[in-house]
Nucleic acid binder design. Structure first.
Lengths: 242, 242
DNA sequence: GTGACAGTTCGGCGCCTGCCGAAGTGTCCG
DNA sequence: CGGACACTTCGGCAGGCGCCGAACTGTCAC
């Protein structure tokens, strides 16, 4: 009824809803949040992590892969999935920044320990987050390597600093070189984008940080403490924290 | 069942799904897409535009307002809604960029005309889009006002160019000064962010462009043609198009 | 006041979707 | 080969959600 003046707006514009629907379910959103650590997880890992049956996980993963949010890789009897590309990670992050970020208190001692390790230093897709991630970002700002005056930008000094460390940033892509990403634990922005990713990669390659077990938490090594003090004058009290 | 090793991941992290759910419905997504023109619409306008009953529109709008995606303003018997802030617009845009942007051919002559006007020049939330928006962005790049080498950045020349035009860009906010926004019709990026918004505002204030009726389409005025030729050397053939 | 119109509330209908368990397929390993 | 394990497929159930029309409230114009 009432078809007279209806524009039928669906004539134009992209199908927002089909993408949003993929993230509109708690379980699927939980998968994506877990994959935000930038690593590939198996279907069973994700299922256990979210507390759903393997069959349920399979169906969700099918939908996410079909919607191009996740990329999959089959190895033997395992199905590894990861976020399809940095744009997806950024979409998840902006959605998360918009959501009422509830951070309820941990319910057990081991959970508290886990949370503390995560809060200290962790990967956020392909860059560094947590207290250390924010501290690095702050130090880079204080030393004039980053400029927040007109949105976040890398300064000339910043580019030189990266060069001196031997860090090269791919520039061919459409991806912004620097981007701010809201830190869930710190509630403050840390460095993301291509530069954030390159810096994180370098920190792993140079042995500044290592992953703690199979979690997304990372530990700063003695070499890393040394390097971060030398290059960014990060306070020792921060770095020596367990 | 199987509660032994389940992490109950919902212990941490923001509630992605609750936000995504708001955009996971075709009608609500259509509302947001319509509001992407940056103006405020009444509830009835949106209902007719999407072809749903007024009661249905009310419920959707309630949800979107409650979720802080939309802001409302009551005036007499009218309920005006608009996108809550630029961050919401950017979220919608990234979602749209991810979606399979289907642009089916128009079914009627008037629809074709409408589409053509929209494709030529229109507002996209608070900045310019369409052929003209993309052309401005390209010209600014060609003249060295924008730099895409390390992600999109405003150059020193660009800042000076804005200053010469008397355009001031607010810098207090967390919003990026320059940002690329994928153009639905051109399939190429155009300038968004705080600078894009300031430029668009200036174009309206200086009488370079005017809105066509009550649509999101805009027309370039003779004064605007003159200005865009003088400041950016845009080709006349582009600007004189109906 | 009276009528027109914008918006809201409510009950109810129907579909869609997420979940599971059971059974089946494919892979690895001894 | 045979068992363990990762994953998938397939009913079927249950809850959620979008939709409408009818009735109601509030505002404006005459």
């Amino acid at each position: 009824m009432n078809t007279q003046h209806v524009h039928d707006v669906r004539e134009a514009g992209p199908d927002l809803a089909s993408v949003a629907r993929l993230l509109a379910d708690g379980t699927r959103a939980g998968f994506c949040l877990a994959l935000l650590d930038g690593r590939a997880w198996t279907a069973t890992e994700l299922a256990r992590h979210l507390g759903v049956a393997p069959s349920t996980a399979t169906e969700h993963l099918n939908a996410l892969v079909r919607g191009n949010l996740l990329a999959e890789e089959r190895q033997g009897r395992h199905r590894y999935v990861r976020l399809a590309d940095p744009h997806v990670a950024e979409l998840i992050e902006s959605l998360a920044a918009m959501a009422p970020g509830r951070v309820p208190p941990p319910r057990s001692l081991s959970a508290a320990g886990r949370r503390q390790a995560l809060a200290h230093a962790r990967t956020c897709y392909d860059h560094l987050a947590g207290t250390v991630g924010v501290a690095i970002t702050d130090a880079m700002t204080a030393r004039g390597l980053l400029d927040w005056q007109h949105g976040l930008q890398l300064t000339g000094d910043g580019a030189a600093w990266l060069g001196a460390l031997g860090i090269t940033v791919p520039n061919g892509t459409r991806r912004p070189s620097v981007r701010s990403c809201l830190d869930w634990t710190e509630r403050r922005p840390h460095l993301a984008g291509a530069v954030g990713a390159a810096l994180c990669r370098h920190a792993f390659d140079a042995g500044w940080i290592t992953r703690i077990g199979t979690t997304r938490a990372v530990a700063v090594t003695p070499a890393g403490r040394h390097a971060l003090q030398a290059h960014l004058a990060l306070p020792d009290t921060l770095l020596s924290r367990k």
